[in-house]
């Protein structure tokens, strides 16, 4: 199980770097996160030694960058026919699904790690709470994983990458804002209290903001890991189902 997983993961990672995908993703992610932090987030004006104005943009950056990264994951294999190669190799399907996901997650982790200059900057300028920053990085990484698992799953549905992108962006958006007043207003009034709190509890934003504030709760981490597990499981089922 582990050897095939690592084989797939290595190939996927190599393919990010063999194409301009890696370069474009990293450059855009770094440039946008810096621009948003300094110009829109008013990093300097706030005059506070923390990275709130940096991390608060992550859900929105992921919202359109991650679907762009995951849209090819399975759709391209179906389009080019390589799926036929991949699924006739003697490897268990869960290992292939996990390997592809892990490669995307590690890659996103790399992009996230490359934002380290801003962490150095804030430490030079003041005395931030580095515990909160580490927790936020960790939370951002977990949230990216949740976005990625949704993208991977939906990419398996179609061989059209545009459709995969749009579907992923929509579902990720719903997950991100499900705790917002607009969405909750839609449910309140007719839906039972239980459903209302369930929908509110699905929000990526709520869980991430909790971690960002430095309130490290196991439940927030557990939430993101559950989302990842659920969508990767569905990913496996969809790939298996499309064989029939």
């Amino acid at each position: 199980m582990l050897t095939p997983l690592w084989t797939i993961c290595r190939r996927e990672l190599a393919s990010y770097f063999a194409t301009p995908v890696a370069l474009v993703f990293i450059v855009v992610f770094l440039a946008l996160s810096a621009a948003l932090t300094f110009f829109v987030g008013n990093f300097f004006v706030r005059g506070q030694a923390d990275l709130q104005s940096f991390f608060m943009w992550h859900p929105w950056l992921y919202l359109f960058l991650i679907p762009a990264m995951t849209m090819r994951l399975w759709a391209e294999e179906h389009k080019t026919g390589t799926i036929e190669m991949l699924l006739t190799l003697p490897m268990p399907l869960p290992a292939i699904v996990l390997g592809k996901f892990l490669a995307a997650w590690l890659f996103t982790g790399l992009a996230l790690a490359l934002t380290f200059p801003i962490w150095i900057a804030v430490n030079v300028l003041g005395r931030p709470d580095n515990g909160v920053i580490i927790a936020s990085y960790f939370g951002s990484f977990l949230m990216a994983g949740a976005f990625l698992s949704i993208g991977a799953c939906l990419s398996a549905v179609t061989k059209n990458q545009v459709i995969a992108f749009v579907l992923t962006a929509c579902l990720c958006f719903l997950f991100t804002v499900s705790g917002s007043p607009v969405i909750l207003a839609f449910f309140s009034g007719w839906a039972p209290e239980g459903l209302l709190s369930l929908v509110a509890g699905l929000s990526f934003l709520e869980h991430f903001q909790a971690i960002m504030r430095g309130v490290v709760d196991v439940r927030d981490g557990f939430y993101f890991l559950s989302v990842i597990t659920l969508f990767l499981f569905m990913n496996t089922v969809i790939v298996e189902w499309r064989k029939a």
């Binding site: 190939r11 190599a14 393919s15 063999a18 194409t19 080019t80 026919g81 390589t82 036929e84 190669m85 006739t88």
Partner: peptide, 14 residues
């Protein structure tokens, strides 16, 4: 089994 699918698909970037 060794299998050559129709059209010999392979990862183009490799």
């Amino acid at each position: 089994i060794g299998y050559l699918p129709e059209g010999a698909p392979a990862y183009g970037d490799m």
